[in-house]
Design a protein around this nucleic acid. Structure first.
Lengths: 155, 155
DNA sequence: CTCCATTGGTTCAATGTCGAACAAGATAGT
DNA sequence: ACTATCTTGTTCGACATTGAACCAATGGAG
């Protein structure tokens, strides 16, 4: 009985997460220029925050996404001129991903375009609520990530 | 400065939500039989929990999804024999969605197949954390839903 | 009754995501 | 050096999701 309630509650959590994921993605993409998706923005943002010159596989791992998905995202970013690929200096199989000037500009513009929506979310929530939400979400993400490896395949 | 931190934190929240959505979806779909996706399960589950005989549009609204997406999900469920469509009694444009016996069986089996994974999540978290997580997520979902209507289109 | 805007649903094209299979370079064991 | 295996990345096919355009039935204005 109590067990059943916990199952229902947990399922409801994943349900809400799915819906929020959908809605927030739509909200962000509505602010990005034509042809730009959230994956592209996330990629550029990561390359600025962390470092240039990563390999596609390292990026795929950072985003918890299969490597073919990263291939697809990068090829789109290349097509738009936001990043460029250069051969890996020591490993002939691999490549490295580098930001272009246009990529930096796109990312800065996108940050500015997204800020009002984020500010609206901040207005509508309280600081402590956000902190605990992020904490619980991270806990859940870490668990699921390990759980997947425990029961299944690698990236 | 503090504003900037809040922006970063909020963005991180949406980031984690996206990843958890991905991971949980993959976890669930790995337990469902070949050809069955999470949308189909959610649909059948909703039809059992709430009521049979809903129209596709009502279902689309319930899932916060455009109506063509619901068309696609329903047609898949029909193809697998889990639901059937009947004409709407009073509105010639509309249809109604009804569970079949196979649909009920599929849903019951899926619940049983998913329970161990949910139980693992329950084991790895504490009850109070789950409650507050669900609460904050719901708050966020409600806000985003209203925010979308305020700035944009209907379903 | 006749128009015509509205509503419910489908179709089409575009994009994102992912598993499986593949090609090519790197690496370890012999 | 040679071969078997592993790693990196791409290609291909499948499905989910969505906006836009479209069709058919409804229902109100005149």
């Amino acid at each position: 009985m109590q067990d059943d309630d916990a199952l229902r509650e947990t399922f409801a959590i994943f349900n809400e997460i799915g819906i929020v994921s959908q809605l927030s993605r739509a909200m962000f993409e509505a602010r990005l220029p034509e042809g730009a998706g959230l994956p592209h923005f996330s990629l550029l943002n990561h390359l600025i925050r962390v470092e240039d010159g990563r390999t596609p596989l390292a990026l795929a791992r950072a985003f918890q996404v299969p490597k073919n998905t990263m291939t697809h995202t990068i090829s789109g970013a290349v097509r738009h001129g936001w990043v460029e690929l250069r051969p890996h200096p020591t490993d002939g199989r691999s490549k490295t991903v580098w930001l272009t000037e246009a990529g930096r500009r796109f990312r800065d513009d996108a940050i500015a375009a997204l800020a009002p929506d984020l500010a609206a979310v901040i207005d509508a929530t309280d600081a402590e609520g956000r902190a605990v939400l992020l904490e619980r979400l991270t806990e859940l993400r870490v668990f699921l990530d390990g759980y997947r490896d425990r029961n299944g395949s690698a990236s």
